[in-house]
Computed example of a mutant assay.
Amino acid sequence: MTRQRATTIGFTAILMWALLALLTIGSAPVPPFLLNALCFGIGGGLGLIWLALGPGFDVLRGISWKVYAFGSIALFGYHALYFTAFRIAPAAETGLIAYLWPLFIVLLSGLLPGERLGPLHILGALIAFAGAALILLGRGDTGASVPVAGLVLAFLCAITWAAYSVLSRRLGQVPTESVIVYCLATAALSLLVHLAFEETIWPASRWGWLSVIALGLGPVGAAFFTWDVGMKKGDIQLLGVASYAAPLLSTLALVAGGRAQATPILLLAAALITGGAALAARASLRPVRPAEDG
């Protein structure tokens, strides 16, 4: 698989994550960890069917339990921190801190063997982050005070996802099918937390169930598989900067779905995000070569 193709596959995860907010709203009033268990259960279950009809279960043999533990803890930990942070602190501030993960991916990727972090990568990441900040801060969530604990959890959330994404590059020899185990383990852990701390509330309508299923198929399912391909074999820096398109696309999806209103700030945010990604893309222009397995 070429670097360019792997990068394109990675982009599809960003597109799927753009529907995360809209579908999450539609899944109400399902509590967070139950929703997590349902969605990851759907994603992992479909992965098992794909595995049975395709490469077979033998592909999962020989993978170290440490790898499975790493992926499972990362996916579960990220979502646990994410949901808890949004319960404690206002959405705008929490979302802004949580969306530091693309910037961290770009910066941390420079430490990987064979990768080079240039000035345009850094400048593009900062410009794109400014666009994401405009969207998140422009939602109108205000308050007299912002709980520090919530912001700390959001920061840890960003660090967790960035570390998982970058370290996945070091696991390039591990087949993407391993994500199936990550998803199923995350579903099991989420179910345990739900049973211990949450009240069981199922979707209240057909749209609610459709939203849960759509989440399991896309943003909390297939997206993790395509993101894994992009992180392991694609242009990790370009994907990191392009991830800033997620809050923009998410906002546009909410507008299209009647859950938010279009504002002039979206135009400026779009220009900043597009410009930042363009700078990173220019910095990444070099002869396309096949991705290495390691």
Rank of each mutant, 00 (worst) to 15 (best):
V106Q: 06
A133V: 10
G77E: 08
Q4Y: 06
R3Q: 12
L215I: 02
F104C: 08
L254H: 04
A163M: 11
Q261T: 15
A187H: 11
W202S: 01
M1Y: 04
W227H: 12
V220D: 07
G143H: 04
L112N: 11
F70H: 05
F225N: 02
A128Q: 06
F225I: 09
R170K: 14
S27I: 08
G218Q: 08
M16Q: 10
P29F: 00
G56C: 11
L134H: 02
T94Y: 04
I25N: 13
G143Y: 01
P90I: 06
L151T: 04
F40G: 02
I73F: 10
G218C: 13
G257I: 13
C183P: 04
G276F: 08
V288T: 13
L210R: 02
G26E: 03
V255R: 14
L117H: 04
A158Y: 00
Y164G: 07
A278P: 07
V59D: 06
T274A: 15
V179H: 02
A149C: 02
V179I: 14
T160Q: 10
V181K: 07
V241S: 13
L238P: 00
I97Q: 06
Y99D: 09
A162N: 12
R289E: 02
T94L: 11
A128S: 15
L34V: 07
I9E: 06
T12M: 15
L111R: 15
L248E: 01
A163P: 13
A74L: 01
V220I: 14
A214K: 00
A253K: 12
S205F: 03
P102S: 07
A6F: 01
I236K: 12
Y164Q: 14
P55M: 13
Q173K: 15
L267N: 06
V146A: 09
L48P: 15
T176Q: 09
A28W: 00
R87T: 05
G216I: 00
I180G: 04
A154N: 01
G218T: 15
P175R: 11
A260Y: 01
L117S: 05
L35T: 09
T274H: 01
L238V: 12
E93N: 14
S109K: 05
P31E: 05
P203I: 04
L35A: 11
L117R: 10
G44M: 13
